[in-house]
Write a protein that binds this DNA or RNA. Structure first.
Lengths: 249, 249
DNA sequence: CGTTCTCTTGACTCATCTCAAATCTGGTGG
DNA sequence: CCACCAGATTTGAGATGAGTCAAGAGAACG
């Protein structure tokens, strides 16, 4: 997932962009894309590289084109909590804010469609389609953050792992448009440590619960980074939230 | 805090509104306020009353004028997590979304400046000042949600309680502009149960940790709903996050 | 002045963390 | 191609923070 070989010319056309219809530019007209084109550039970060440090002035603003980045905060004594998972089309940076609020780290190799911040902010002011899209995306992120809060505050370790698997499976199914015929197959773009930081657990507990779900037949590990889910409804059941009846959306 | 007697005529002028400069209308020009005036009405809910149910069509949209409301989600087996705390000037409802995502409940008596949803959405589209303010407020909420995620995922019960006290103390100090001379005094607008739901704890643990902080002299309970903080820096220290050096912002 | 609800406190349990060691993995140089 | 190494992952054993269950103390209300 998400590591598909991606060849981006330095000046690839927005129209050909893989995230054209889901990113901040989704609502833009061709004429508006031209303006974005003028202030954008691509930049790639290696897995593990820090893209921005909490508290520093905002110098990266743009969209994730490929790869996975994480937003996280660290307590004085080293405890760390991931507070955002940025997948392709997600927006990095807070428009019109002076500083980054959280550490942004590349979890895999990450390519960003990066904008010059002042220029971008000027463009946002002048382009209702951009501002509207930004509002929509921010509202979506807020909803996701709130679901995540339910997970952090009230779910058991097993439910947390199952929830994470369900989120990744769903996203991957969406992305690749695969049918659910004999189970969903997806790759884990996160290390055990990243999962632990995501879920508010230790790596040992993450490992143990993954083993437990494997033993219960809920998930099958093809290898340590590829998971098959034979029965998505069973997985959702383990995740605890009964919201929807198992639709792969 | 926040329960100051409030007399709102059914058609109070926006210009006289206590939240005029912090709510969704903050960036509006007088001419734009007139349009908002035309579609607004006040409504008051009793403490404990449910303002909106998760999943139902959105029929309440507007600003909290006075009182405290909570956003929360409940798991099938009854576990509940609060995911938002709405104080005066905060916005209720998701513009342009068909349904409410979370239960909205009045924690104290709550007065809302309520808008007709379709009219309001139309106005948002036509009024950049409104849309911009909505984006700013949503970004702030997202930041708050992420700090909260750190609390839920990584803090101990004692740190959670201290963090909550610090948040309430800070908000109250802001609101009343009081000096920090001999400690901050503020009221607890939440029951033990609401605090537990906020912090991802049980009421017993909340009670125990409040007692512990009291015994340690970090907080003083004037009565069960009024707290004095003699040394705000000491409280921040207990809260675990070292971000700022104790400024009451 | 009961009644009811909220809050506090105690005793015990259990899920998750901590510390420690074994195993697996991918990459490197011989 | 293979042995070795460093990092990632798994597994085990024991400690502990927070939950559960239960009872008692205050406060609010009629």
């Amino acid at each position: 997932m998400l590591q598909a070989p991606l060849i981006l010319q330095e000046h690839s056309r927005c129209a050909d962009c893989p995230i054209r219809h889901r990113a901040v530019c989704a609502y833009c007209e061709p004429a508006e894309l031209v303006k974005l084109d003028a202030i954008k550039s691509y930049k790639t970060y290696k897995a593990g590289e820090t893209i921005a440090w909490a508290g520093e002035p905002m110098d990266v603003i743009g969209s994730v084109v490929s790869g996975v980045a994480t937003l996280s905060r660290t307590l004085a004594d080293g405890r760390r909590q991931m507070v955002g998972l940025l997948l392709p089309s997600d927006f990095i940076g807070r428009p019109c804010r002076p500083a980054v609020a959280f550490d942004v780290v590349a979890a895999s190799d990450v390519t960003i469609c990066r904008f010059n911040a002042p220029e971008f902010e000027k463009l946002v002011r002048a382009t209702p389609a951009l501002e509207r899209r930004l509002l929509d995306m921010t509202l979506d992120e807020l909803d996701a953050a709130r679901d995540w809060m339910l997970l952090l505050g009230r779910k058991t370790a097993r439910e947390k792992i199952a929830s994470l698997m369900a989120i990744l499976a769903r996203r991957d199914a969406n992305l690749t448009q695969q049918t659910v015929a004999d189970g969903i197959l997806f790759s884990l773009p996160l290390t055990r440590e990243a999962m632990a930081d995501y879920l508010g657990l230790t790596i040992e507990t993450v490992s143990r619960q993954i083993s437990a779900l494997k033993k219960a037949g809920i998930i099958i590990l093809e290898d340590s980074r590829h998971v098959r889910v034979p029965d998505f409804v069973a997985l959702l059941d383990e995740a605890g939230d009964d919201s929807d009846g198992g639709m792969v959306s």
